[in-house]
Computed example of a mutant assay.
Amino acid sequence: MPSWLALGDSYTIGEAVAAHQRWPAVLAQRLRQAGTPIDEPQIVAITGWTTDELAQGMDAALLAPPYDLVTLQIGVNNQYRGRPADDYRNEFTSLLARAITLAGARAARVVVVSIPDWGVTRFAREQGRDRRLIATELDSYNAIASDASSRADVRFVDITGISRQHPELLADDGLHPSAAQYALWAAAIEPSVHAALRA
């Protein structure tokens, strides 16, 4: 059965939703229903992780490469904490290189997922956050991730637009996506994952 390593933060672990509602679990089910076998994803992700913290988490995790699929979605907490974009560029590029290595040096088996825009959430509104600034900074982070993915011949999936189109699809915390939004993400990511597994 093809193996899958999902690397990330709260969005990958599915903060505030049930385990079967997080997008990797939903996507795994969609793949199976489409006739593509896949093992349950091994998730290395914790709410609040930045790029450097994910790297440390990977160091501590019991990994078993090569994986047939590696997904990577990270960076929102770098932006949330006000870290420089240049730091994100360097750390993300390093994580992407590690992801490729974990996929058996097969860049075609790696899929990067963009950072959603938390500035559109009820949490941001109630906290009086500068929603335009958040959007601008996240666009910059996502451009960095997209460029690094392109340079490495890795697939990049933009789910940021979904988060902006459906600001009402939130979990009870008013910040993280609801199960319904994660389902939309899974549908958007699925074609790239199918292509990766065929590579």
Rank of each mutant, 00 (worst) to 15 (best):
S94D: 08
G75W: 00
V70P: 05
I100M: 04
I74L: 05
A99M: 08
A45Q: 09
E40A: 15
Q56H: 11
G75P: 00
E53M: 15
R98N: 13
G57M: 11
T71V: 09
I43T: 08
T51N: 13
W49Y: 15
D59F: 05
V76Q: 02
G35H: 09
A55I: 11
D68I: 02
A34F: 07
L95E: 04
V70R: 01
L27A: 12
L27T: 14
T50V: 09
E91M: 02
R81C: 02
D52C: 08
F92W: 02
I46H: 11
V76P: 01
E53Y: 02
Q73P: 01
A99Y: 04
V44S: 06
L54Q: 08
E53T: 14
D68H: 11
E40H: 11
V70I: 05
L69H: 04
N77C: 02
P41C: 10
D86V: 07
R32A: 12
T50Q: 13
G57D: 05
T36L: 15
T50Y: 01
R32C: 12
D52M: 07
R98Q: 15
V70S: 03
R81S: 09
A45E: 01
Y67H: 04
P66L: 13
D39L: 10
G48E: 12
E53W: 09
M58N: 07
A45N: 07
A34K: 10
A97V: 10
A85S: 12
D87N: 02
I43G: 12
R81W: 00
I74V: 14
D59G: 03
